[in-house]
Structures are given as C-alpha cells and as structure tokens.
Design a protein around this nucleic acid. Structure first.
Length: 469
RNA sequence: CGGGGUGUAGCAUAAUGGUAGUGUGCACGGUUUGGGACCGUGUGGCCCGGGUUCGAUUCCCGGCACCCCGACCA
C-alpha cells in the first residue's frame, strides 16, 4: 500500500502526505489554521530550545507583549501598514460591544512593542535594549500551507534598540549567523545574505535572510534579521538623551524564526519513505523494536534501551502490530536509528542496527551498543549535512541570460544582476521567480559577468534566484 | 479576489428517484509476529436550506465549507 506519493511524481502532495503520515500536523476547523500534533510539536520544541539557548547566551532577555494592538499603532509607519494591512485579522466586537477602535491581531510586534520602548528608553544608559518574545502571530494569507504559511504561527521575534547604527548592523548580522548555525545544527545548509529592495520586510532598511533549498529546487525563507534604521524610532518617537545632552533617535533591529523551520526540515531531508530527521532534532533518536513479545526478547530489548539511556530512546512494545508495521511507522517518522532485536539477536547477543539516512543494516555486539550508537548518531548528523550541502551545490546553476532559466526547471540560479526593481518584476512575470538572496560572500566581490542577465545593463553583484514557497 | 473541482462512516471510496455497499480505522475474542498478520463478532454515514415528486443521498435552485490553479505572501 502506497501511503506516500513519490517526490518525483508530485512534490507538494508528497509534502502533504508526510505531514499527515508522520503525524506532524492536521488541519483544523478554521481554514489555514493548523493543529500541530505531539510528534510535530516535539520537533519544534527541540528547535526552539536550541534557539532559545543561543538567544539568551547572546545576552537577550525574554519577555511578553499582548496579542492585540490598536489599529492606529500599525498606521504609524507607512510602509509597515501598507505591507501588513491585506493580511490582518481585526477584532471589532469584544465583550458583546462594538469597539470604538478596532483591535488588530499582531501580524508581527513592532507596532505592539515600540510605543512601550519609547517609554522605557530615555537615556543613552538605557541602550542597547535587547529583548525577545516567543509568541503566536496571525497573517491571513491567501494560500496557506502546513508549517510554511499557516494563518497563525508560532515564532520568536527579537527586537533591539541601539544608540549606534553600526552596533545595530553588527547585531543584525550576528543574529543571522545564529539562524544559520541553528539550520546547520539541523543539518541544513543555507544561502545567506541580503534581500533585494522588493523582498525587504515592510519598514526595514535592510533585510537579511537564510534561504533553504527544498528537494524540489524551490526556496524557503528560513529566518530573517532586519535592520530598521530609525524608521520606527521616528514613527513611535523612540529617542534618548545622549552624552552630548541632545536627543537622538535609536537604531533598531528585529529578527525572527518560526515553525516554518519544520517545513524546511521536511523538504530539505525527506525522501520517499517519509521524514528523515537529523539526530539533533529527532524527538526519538533510537527506537528499539522487539520482533517478538516473548519474555526473553522483551528483557533483551529493555536491557538495550537501558544501555542507551543517555540518548532519546524508545522501545516499541505494541503487541498488536507486526514488526514490519513498526518499521514503516518509524521510517515515516524519520527516527535516525532503529534497533531490531529478536530470538536471533538474543542467541548471538547482538543488535541489528538500521540507519534511516542510508537505509543500511549492521549487526553490532550488544556489549558495545552504547559506543556504537553514540558514534553512529554523530555520523548520521554529519552525513545528512554533507549530503544536503552536496545537493544544494549541485542544484545551483550559473547563468548569464534570463532565457537559460527554462532549460533548468527546479534549480536555483546564480546570476549577475543590475538590481533594478523593474528587471525583477519582469523576471517574476515571465518565470514566477524573484531574487532570493545576495550571498554575503558575494557582497564585496565584483560580479562574474559585467552585464545583468535580465537587462544587459551593468551588473552590480551575483545573486541567487529561485522559485519559492 | 478570478478560474476549476469536490462535499456519502474517524479516514478513503462505490452505487442509487424507493431499507446505502466496500476497504481501512476503532472495540471485543482467538490465533499470530524477521518488512504494513489472519479469522470471527461488533461499531459507525448521505454538508445546510428551499424546490420538483407519492417518495430526494440522487434531479433543480440557493447557501456554506473545503481542495486545486492563479493573483497575494516577514
């Protein structure tokens, strides 16, 4: 029975199948709002814990601001309101009464937090202010997709204010580095750097991004770190009295990563057997499957799991499921290592170890199982990153003319670009593709070609282009 | 918001103007267990409103919901 559509047949369907069959999430009664099931949420919690640890280690404090904000707050920053109005959810009635001023449900919290920042910040001694919140936000998107673009989603959003613009810029890049490292911790390589003018966050001066390549060659915007300059400071009147005795506007950043990371994780690693999880993120790193439920085999399985207690290990003791059924279940869920134990293993005092990434089976003496698993988890983690990196590099095609795009469906493109907004519009109309990122490593380099691949005008930098989710 | 499609059991599906069938799941009993076990018993269903008709799950009209394609999308 084929429960998962092969990737090569219909990639979006494969994705939906994996989300369902791996029991990550399901849809709810409200269109576009998803229910994250325990297995999916456990993965998110692992990512979240890792990210939260890094955020705190960088000296940022967690706090919490409300879900609602007065509509007028959003209108303070012109580009910001223009960018977010179309996807707002608005409350007009509360407590049985029509509200005098409607309340927006936050689509992001700049306009929620910054009026308060204006109160908190008075002196240069109050800077830098660096805070973060874990929260839900709502963006009523036209076409939702599980994890990647649900109407409501969980994320963290960091917000900071500095006296010095350069200090702010340093932080923006440092936070982007943090996101890149978290992705690498998930065995996912990213392409990272600046966004183009048209792809910037509404209200930002600079948006930086980590772009992930899905297995179908589409891009996923993995996390973003923005420099807001003094745009919001002026809109919300956030200023401080400097050492010079004069008033100055602050320079601000905001940076966020959502559970879209799960979508990236699924699409960057998954195969036709289902999800494939790197050990760092896997809620269960090792599953022990007893082939038979005899007393001896059960005891052996239990002993093995005790020997592996330092890892996230689980014994699948379900009595009414055949071994084959259990194998499929854990493969769909992407558990990195499966240990099969039956009468043969008991007799020989060995474990049959299956690794999800390469699908290989090995026989390992029971007394060495802990060392073996310890090494193998590291090896799987490294191997998954290596193969994802290799895949990424093999699927970036360098082109010098826009016409070459149609010869390479499902690829990323590296091309020298004039950075003209009009040329990006043309690219979008013709190939439904936009710029994804100006990789940091190319920012200070001359472009490979002198002329723009779209317009033929002088090129400024080499950029990455791709279709996106 | 434009174009197309679909609403039948928890899920997946079939047939039908006259008592709605199958698979799967679920529950119970038994036999099983080295790649999605088997037998038996049981559980459970026609999106909403109106019209035509002796009779509508079926035909017609309206509504609502969801899915797909497009536009939109830190």
């Amino acid at each position: 029975m084929q429960r998962i559509t092969p990737q090569e047949k219909d990639f979006p369907q494969w994705y939906q199948d994996v989300v369902k069959e791996a029991e990550l999430a399901e849809s709810s009664q409200v269109r576009g709002c998803g229910i994250v099931k325990p297995y999916g949420f456990a993965i998110w919690e692992n990512i979240k814990d890792e990210l939260n640890r890094r955020i705190k280690a960088d000296g940022v404090e967690n706090l919490y601001f409300p879900l609602f904000l007065p509509m007028s707050n959003l209108q303070a920053e012109a580009e910001h309101v223009e960018g977010f109005s179309p996807e707002l959810a608005v409350v007009t009635v509360a407590g049985g009464e029509e509200l005098q001023e409607p309340l927006a449900v936050r689509p992001t919290s700049e306009a929620v937090m910054y009026p308060t920042f204006a109160k908190w910040i008075n002196s240069y001694r109050d800077l830098p202010l660096r805070v973060n919140q874990w929260a839900n936000v709502v963006r009523w998107e036209k076409r939702p997709r599980p994890f990647l673009r649900w109407s409501e989603f969980l994320w963290q959003e960091g917000h900071s204010a500095f006296a010095d613009k350069n200090e702010a810029l340093e932080e923006m890049w440092r936070m982007l580095d943090m996101y890149r490292e978290v992705y690498e911790w998930m065995a996912i390589p990213t392409l990272w750097g600046k966004k183009s003018e048209s792809e910037k966050f509404a209200g930002a001066e600079i948006t930086t991004t980590t772009e992930v390549m899905a297995k179908d060659g589409k891009a996923i915007q993995g996390a973003t770190s923005h420099h807001l300059a003094d745009n919001f400071a002026k809109a919300f009147d956030i200023k401080y009295l400097g050492e010079d005795g004069k008033w100055h506007f602050v320079y601000q950043n905001s940076w966020g990563m959502s559970w879209r990371t799960l979508g990236a994780l699924i699409m960057a690693h998954g195969d036709n057997k289902g999800l494939k999880l790197p050990p760092n993120v896997a809620p269960t790193q090792v599953v022990v499957v007893p082939i038979k439920n005899t007393a001896e085999v059960s005891k052996f399985a239990s002993d093995i799991s005790k020997a592996l207690a330092e890892f996230r290990v689980k014994v699948d003791n379900r009595e009414n499921k055949s071994p084959g059924h259990k194998f499929y279940d854990w493969e769909i869920k992407g558990v990195p290592i499966r240990i099969e134990v039956g009468e043969n293993e008991v007799a020989d005092m060995v474990c049959t170890v299956y690794r999800r990434d390469t699908q290989e089976k090995t026989s390992v003496p029971a007394q060495h199982i802990n060392d073996y698993v310890s090494d193998l988890l590291k090896e799987i983690q490294d191997n998954m990153f290596r193969s994802a990196k290799e895949f990424q590099q093999q699927n970036i095609v360098q082109i010098s003319s826009i016409d070459e795009i149609e010869k390479h469906p499902g690829k990323f493109f590296l091309a020298s670009w004039s950075e003209e907004p009009e040329s990006e519009k043309l690219l979008k109309e013709k190939y439904s593709m936009v710029s994804r990122v100006l990789p940091k490593e190319y920012e200070d380099k001359k472009p490979t070609n002198k002329t723009c691949f779209i317009t033929g005008e002088p090129a400024k930098h080499d950029w990455i282009f791709a279709k996106s989710y």
